[in-house]
């Protein structure tokens, strides 16, 4: 910690960060103001009236606890599955040689272009025939399957800076491809794996389309709160509450895990020198 950062850097970052949270302050202010105040503009703090109405209404009208639990269950399972399987795929594509390697890699990565509604109708039919509707796996499976499009690429991208001498050493020591992966590669991929985890968590948590169509009785938080706005009553104040309630959990997750995420990736520096 010898390096001293010039003060202006902190000031610049601080100013940008403050600018960046203006819309978030807008969301928070909106959730506490009366509708006519919102119509005037939430930033007229001196004239606007404050109220807890929107919070009370969301609290009393929507069974938040159950949906929080469903959201947590679905998101956690989907996240863990992605964190377990995507690195394996990335490793396989990066180091192993097998038929159709490049073709399948291109297909997987390009799947990111597929819009979700393309997936929805065929899957809806399939789940229906299999009796999987209203089952959380109907949502988790596509979450994980669709995540490979970016998660494999993300991990593979970090593998490109992975020191080859480590792999070589493991091979000379007699490690097979699978033990090379579990013993050498995996422990050094903590940071990109956590990056995958955080992204997957955020996306699954905020996803609306799949759970909306595939779940019925126990729905996720986003589905529950999607019905706040009617066709002709946007109820922006309650939507703001919903946005805050929905955003809190991923933010906490990020806070807790950002340490794992920033530390641990020392390997590429090792390889570079």
């Amino acid at each position: 910690m010898v390096y001293r950062a010039p003060r202006w850097i902190i000031i610049v970052v601080g100013i940008i960060a403050c600018l960046w949270v203006v819309p978030i302050i807008g969301i928070i202010a909106t959730s506490f103001q009366t509708p006519e105040s919102i119509a005037r503009g939430w930033w007229h703090f001196s004239q606007n009236q404050l109220t807890l109405n929107a919070w009370k209404k969301v609290w009393s009208d929507y069974p938040l606890a159950n949906s929080l639990w469903v959201s947590t269950k679905v998101t956690l399972l989907a996240t863990v599955l992605t964190m377990l399987t995507a690195p394996a795929a990335a490793y396989v594509f990066h180091y192993l040689r097998f038929p159709l390697r490049r073709t399948s890699l291109i297909i997987i990565i390009n799947a990111f272009v597929l819009p979700q509604q393309v997936v929805i109708i065929p899957l809806f039919r399939l789940w229906r025939e299999m009796g999987m509707l209203d089952n959380i796996w109907a949502v988790i499976i596509p979450y994980v399957g669709l995540s490979y499009a970016w998660s494999v690429f993300l991990v593979k991208s970090f593998l490109e800076d992975f020191p080859n001498d480590l792999i070589e050493a493991a091979r000379i020591d007699g490690c097979g491809p699978i033990s090379t992966f579990t013993r050498v590669v995996l422990p050094n991929l903590i940071s990109p794996i956590f990056a995958c985890g955080i992204l997957q968590f955020l996306w699954c948590w905020n996803s609306l389309l799949l759970p909306m169509l595939f779940l019925r009785n126990d729905v996720t938080l986003t589905v529950l709160l999607a019905r706040i706005s009617g066709t002709y009553d946007p109820n922006i104040d309650q939507q703001a509450v919903a946005a805050i309630v929905t955003a809190i959990v991923p933010l906490l997750v990020f806070l807790i895990f950002q340490r794992q995420f920033a530390v641990g990736n020392r390997v590429s520096s090792g390889g570079k020198e």
Partner: peptide, 17 residues
Amino acid sequence: VTTSGDQRGGIRTALLG
């Protein structure tokens, strides 16, 4: 049924499914 965009999309998806 809720959809972003037009609600008829969600209704049709459910019915076609």
